[in-house]
Design a binder for these strands. Sequence first.
DNA 1: CTGAAAGCGCTAACAC
DNA 2: GTGTTAGCGCTTTCAG
Lengths: 333, 333
Amino acid sequence: MTTIQEVSKLAGVSVATVSRTLSMPDKVSPKTREKVHAAIAKTNYRPNVLARNFRTRKALAIVVLVPDIANSFFSRVIRGIEQAAQKKGYSVLLGDTQGLAEREYTYANMVKTSQADGIIQLHAHIPFENEADLSLPLVNACDCVRDAGIPTVQLDNAAAAKSMTEHLISLGHTRIAAIQGPSDSPITQDRLRGYQEALRENNLEVDTSLVGTGDFSLASGEAAARGLMTHPSRPTALFCFSDEMAFGAIHHIKSLGLSVPGDISVAGFDDISFAAYCDPPLTTISQPAEEFGTMAMSMLYDIINHAPPESLNHYLPHKLICRQSSGPVNPAR
Amino acid sequence: MTTIQEVSKLAGVSVATVSRTLSMPDKVSPKTREKVHAAIAKTNYRPNVLARNFRTRKALAIVVLVPDIANSFFSRVIRGIEQAAQKKGYSVLLGDTQGLAEREYTYANMVKTSQADGIIQLHAHIPFENEADLSLPLVNACDCVRDAGIPTVQLDNAAAAKSMTEHLISLGHTRIAAIQGPSDSPITQDRLRGYQEALRENNLEVDTSLVGTGDFSLASGEAAARGLMTHPSRPTALFCFSDEMAFGAIHHIKSLGLSVPGDISVAGFDDISFAAYCDPPLTTISQPAEEFGTMAMSMLYDIINHAPPESLNHYLPHKLICRQSSGPVNPAR
DNA sequence: CTGAAAGCGCTAACAC
DNA sequence: GTGTTAGCGCTTTCAG
């Protein structure tokens, strides 16, 4: 491997000059610049970035903590992060945590050991064992810890859930069930709140027996729907807090010989790519997944570089997408 | 930040001893070991991994080149890579390339600049500009460049496609269409070959007008199906080279008022999680996605550490999954 | 505009 | 077992 030494020797200049040519070319005379470039080309020199980062005390890398990279929503967020990071000269270290605190700590440690400059956490959990570590550069996106004073980028989940519920109400539904996510997750809580608010404001009963629980996955949606569909007074609409759970629910509903939306309207949340292609196409809330990533990266960048973030909590817009899985309540029933 | 210096001073030992305590504890007497650990705890010392890696000339990181992290198959492969890497003490640098050679080169450069020790490429393309770089540690997985002498881990795509085609033939189908991926991709070519072989061996006509082309995505499957369904002599079965394209195709077929598999059987490839949940559940080929990742990581690890890989080309098993989207040919037609 | 030299924090010979 | 010491390849004062 060629070093800066050898290049300097070949170019007949000092190592400092070679270094300058690379990082501050305008501080070097055109003549020497040329000589250096010639030597670099000849030796096929690549600066050792590890040495540089060590010397300058920055890793130019960030770590992304994600509960599950295979989740179709998170993977889009990460795509956004990666693109923004690349543009700013940072690389992305992937930390698939499976939701385990242990693994979060391990990855968060990379900041303390100078392997990374900051962390983007996509899960509602502080990835540190010690209070003191809260001073490390951290941005929480998507599902965010509440009132922890850490920078966040999120949806107004309550408003989104409320608008979806209002949509179902406007179709004439009065018994609207829901399948929530894990009840300890803030996004679940916010969506549930929005859903209940809409019911209350429309003088509809808030019936907790109409709320099932899943973990955002296909299988959990199917299981929760199985419970809900045996309800003595079956709902005519079902609002699932993720598209995957909605698919699982629809799968079960159809297996019962019922039709969507004929017998029951179903709505999801996320607007993943399959939503438009399933049968029937899914009414859902669209989230700007990539933007979560770019926004989080941009905030983290500012924090790492000691630029005061404009505001601690960023909210991204959602959109109600009405497709064919929701329809007017069937008077026949 | 605490350094090894300060720890050594506090413990009353040399820096070498501290270093040894951390990396070869059995070469240090229990007594001093204790002293060192006490000092470490007191100072809350974390070794600077950047300095260590620089000194030992290894990055303990690998870069993963993926055309699209948001692809539901690739994200699972990456999950496998991440898990295997973590176990071996390596971290994963994510390189979402969007299939652009430029970006592949940029990321591949991280090996030359000592930021990474090796590369896993999930796309059938050599990520180097110079022939000489082929000496860098590289493993090609999933879609692999043919006969390039680089280590690969892949499916026997021809055999898999052949078995699917035979399945459709066994159901009585004689006009079996296909939607292939990009025609320059080896996996497309192999699957096409397997499909055609099965037709030939069963004395069925190989009709190239029955082969549409997509890019593995939902939308492209829909578009290709649109073309195929206007064929003067409509096929009774359709083999799509990805599940996503199969979903797109089914979507279109249903929009025509036709039924699957009543009017036309549809099969996919990949067995993504949605395959079991769509309507009808999709007949497909299951691939061990995570294993592609762990296997690739394991091979790369051996290469990086100069252990001769047992064999250059690894083949992973596939499985034919028969669900309800394929059925006997309808005699009514 | 350029060079000399110090040193980032750590590991690994090499002595003792 | 432990300490001394020489760098790893680079950036960055500080002089000139």
